[in-house]
Computed example of a mutant assay.
Amino acid sequence: MSHKQKLNIIVILLVILECLLLAPTIAAHAASPSTNVYEQRTIHNLNGIGKYYMGREIAQVMGHTGAGWLERPNREAEEQPSKIISVLNLKPHDVVADIGAGTGYMSFRIAPLLTAGKVIAVDIQPEMLDIIEFFKKEKNISNVEPVLATLTDPNLPPASIDLALMVDAYHELEYPQDVMQGIIKALKPSGRVVLVEYRGENPFIMIKRLHKMTQKQVRKEMQAVGLVWRETKNLLPQQHLMVFEKPNTNS
């Protein structure tokens, strides 16, 4: 083999290696047959955890050190979260679960509307719940209840909530099917789930790919746990707002 041929082989190998690094969603090996709904892969996106659910890689959780991002002053201008609240059709006695509540940004904006109800602010990070407790005292809002969840369980009583809201949170759930099953049990008959996610269909939305979701993917995953899609509102600058409902089996 000539020196030139050896160089060509080396170049080809380097190109193959680069392609593998730039295509993180390619599996390192075929998944072994399993009844498990999750698949672990060794080659994955740097912003993912290497676990896949229904063809989607799960994103890394934004830790409590990112609390400042949630409370940034320009969030209303960028995302217009007040529009989310305006279309939730909340009633004064409703019980709303803010899943992945973080600092309680949405919780504390919803709570004043629930004059006879409350917001259950659910998160897996105790540090986030500490921030919520701090804001409860600072804002003098008593109807926000922090709840520590686990990776697989939102820790909500059966038939206890009217609405579960997830704003930019669902894509980070490490066990999405398990958590959704827990949420469905916690919903009252005909209770709603509202998911807000950055639009994965739009490559020009400058959010990391794994922190965006397409409407098609969300609807597929919600259908898998028995939720019924009701509507998608594209009233937000960068996000889908998708409404699902728990079937009322008593009707």
Rank of each mutant, 00 (worst) to 15 (best):
E138I: 08
D123W: 07
D123A: 05
A116N: 15
S142F: 11
P158T: 09
E127T: 11
E127A: 15
A111N: 12
T150E: 00
I120C: 14
S107N: 06
P146D: 09
E145S: 06
L156S: 04
E138Q: 15
N140T: 13
E138T: 15
G117S: 11
P146E: 03
Y105G: 04
K118V: 09
E138C: 06
I141L: 10
N143Y: 11
L114V: 14
Q125S: 09
T150H: 03
I131E: 06
P126L: 00
V147L: 08
N140C: 10
P157F: 01
S107R: 11
I141A: 11
A121D: 05
N140V: 01
L151P: 02
E145A: 08
E127R: 10
L151T: 08
I141R: 07
V119N: 07
V122P: 07
L114M: 12
D130T: 01
A116W: 04
F134C: 08
V122T: 00
V122G: 03
I110C: 13
S107G: 08
L156T: 04
I110M: 14
A149V: 04
L129S: 07
L156Y: 00
E138Y: 07
K139I: 13
N140K: 14
L113I: 12
D123E: 06
L151F: 12
D130P: 00
V122H: 02
E138N: 11
L156H: 02
Y105W: 15
A116I: 03
N143E: 03
P154M: 14
D130A: 13
V147P: 01
Q125E: 09
I120E: 09
P157C: 12
A121I: 00
E145H: 12
T150W: 02
V119A: 08
D153L: 07
Q125V: 00
E138S: 09
V147W: 05
R109I: 06
V144F: 09
V122W: 12
V144Q: 11
I141S: 05
L129D: 05
V147G: 04
D123I: 02
P157K: 10
P158Q: 13
